[in-house]
Simulated assay, not measured.
Amino acid sequence: MSFTVRIAGVFASALALLASAGGLSSAAGDPLIGKTYAEASSAVASWNGTPKISTVVGSRLATDDCLVSSWQKSSALDSAGNRQRYIFLINLNCNDLLASAGSPGNSITSPVGQHQNELLKSAEWCSEPEQAEYAPCAPFCARNEGMCTANF
């Protein structure tokens, strides 16, 4: 009898792990998380919604450059008692994209930190005078305004 209970316990544990893994993978496909506030606001507007900043962590970046850490639809009621369906409450992280001495931000070991570190390395490489003629540097520097010191 105890063998049957153990098998049932293992099956229940496996089922619980599978159920929780689905929640983790759904965050990866979220349409707003990881986007800048400017990008998220544009997306919400295209859904006929109104973005509202709910919380802000940090103060290093301009509001449009802050990253969306989470969001939810408003559950508030208006003065007539109707639910406000098209209000999106957005939580922002306005710390630097990459932490450095005396400046809070993402760890270089995090996915966002690794991505930012690669961008900084590419910008540094494209800013070297001998790379001025390298064709991919001009569009890279245009996409990442302010990161490159070379004039294209």
Rank of each mutant, 00 (worst) to 15 (best):
K52Q: 15
V44G: 00
G23R: 06
A28S: 12
G29M: 12
K35D: 02
A28Y: 07
S20N: 05
S41C: 06
S54W: 09
L32H: 00
S41P: 02
G23M: 08
A27S: 13
R60Y: 06
P31Q: 13
S13W: 11
W47K: 13
T55C: 12
R60A: 11
S41D: 01
G22A: 09
A12N: 07
E39F: 00
L18Y: 07
S13L: 15
A16R: 00
D30W: 04
G29S: 15
A12E: 01
A43D: 06
S41A: 09
S54F: 10
G58C: 10
S26A: 15
K52G: 04
A19C: 11
A43Y: 02
G58E: 02
G49H: 00
L24R: 08
P31V: 10
L17C: 13
A40P: 03
T55Q: 13
A28I: 08
A12S: 09
V44P: 00
A38I: 06
T50G: 07
L32K: 01
T36H: 01
D30P: 01
G23Y: 02
P51F: 04
T50Q: 15
G58L: 08
N48F: 14
S42H: 10
R60N: 12
K35S: 06
S59K: 11
I33R: 01
D30F: 00
A21S: 15
S41Q: 07
G23A: 05
S42A: 15
S46N: 14
D30Q: 01
T36E: 07
L18G: 13
G34N: 05
A38S: 13
L17G: 07
S59I: 05
S25L: 12
I53N: 06
T36V: 11
A38T: 05
P51L: 04
L15N: 05
Y37I: 00
A14I: 07
A28C: 08
V56H: 03
G29R: 11
A27K: 11
A19N: 08
V56A: 02
L15P: 03
A38H: 06
L17I: 10
S26H: 06
S59G: 14
D30R: 03
S25H: 11
G23S: 12
T55N: 12
P31C: 14
S26C: 10
A38E: 14
A40S: 09
